[in-house]
Amino acid sequence: MILNGLIKEFRIFFRNKTVLTTIIFILFIEIAVIIRSSSAVRMSEVSAVFYFKFFQQHLMIMFFPAVLANILMAAFSVTSEKQSSMLAKLLPKGECFMMRSKVFFCSILSAFMGISYMLTAVWASGLGIFPDHRFVIFLSASFLFMISGLSSFTVYFAFSRFGGSNDYEPKVRVMMIYMFIVSFIIMVFYFFISVSLKTYFDYVTGFRIDYPNVEFLLFLSSNFLFLIIARIMLNGGEKKLSEGLI
């Protein structure tokens, strides 16, 4: 059933010309950044400091397309559904299906856009020799938790706040609040991941002897907590939708 929902989401999302144009534009920007980065790395002297600097920058940029996918989902996909909230109430388990399929699609799109950028950047710039397996697992898990949490929050927020009586059309003020909250979440995420990356850099360059397991674990735990909170909010949203309160 979820595949049915994903196919529907894909069609609704990519048949919006604004969304399609924005995504193509972002892909061009990503390609330009990768080309620029790969030529800059080749010209630089090969050292762990340079590698790490570029790696860290790509890691930060990786979240931009992922966050953009969330914003596009909130601004276009939910609003394009318009009166379909009534359809969700008529279908068996429709409310749950409608919200979850949006979260799944948003998570997949975010992961695809973010990870594909990161992998291409690492491969094109020759940064693949830098991270070890534990570090890659840590990054993947934190990205997964973050994106799933952010997608859940986005869908919850869009359904709860985008004027149910007005076909989910978002008001400018509500959209600004959403952007502010997302920016805040990303800034907090950036702050803590920078701390984790610094400890890892210290370990790689020999300023620190023990592997930064504790820092990684704390960061992952806080990300997981964010995911749980976002899922609880999403469940609340589903319940409200089924009770006709949204």
Binding site: I12, K82, L90, P92
Partner: peptide, 17 residues
């Protein structure tokens, strides 16, 4: 819900499909 069919006044079908 499977037992019910509803044709509302407004369109509730997805316009992009």
């Amino acid at each position: 819900r499977k037992k019910l069919g509803y044709v509302p006044f407004r369109n509730i079908l997805y316009g992009n499909l």
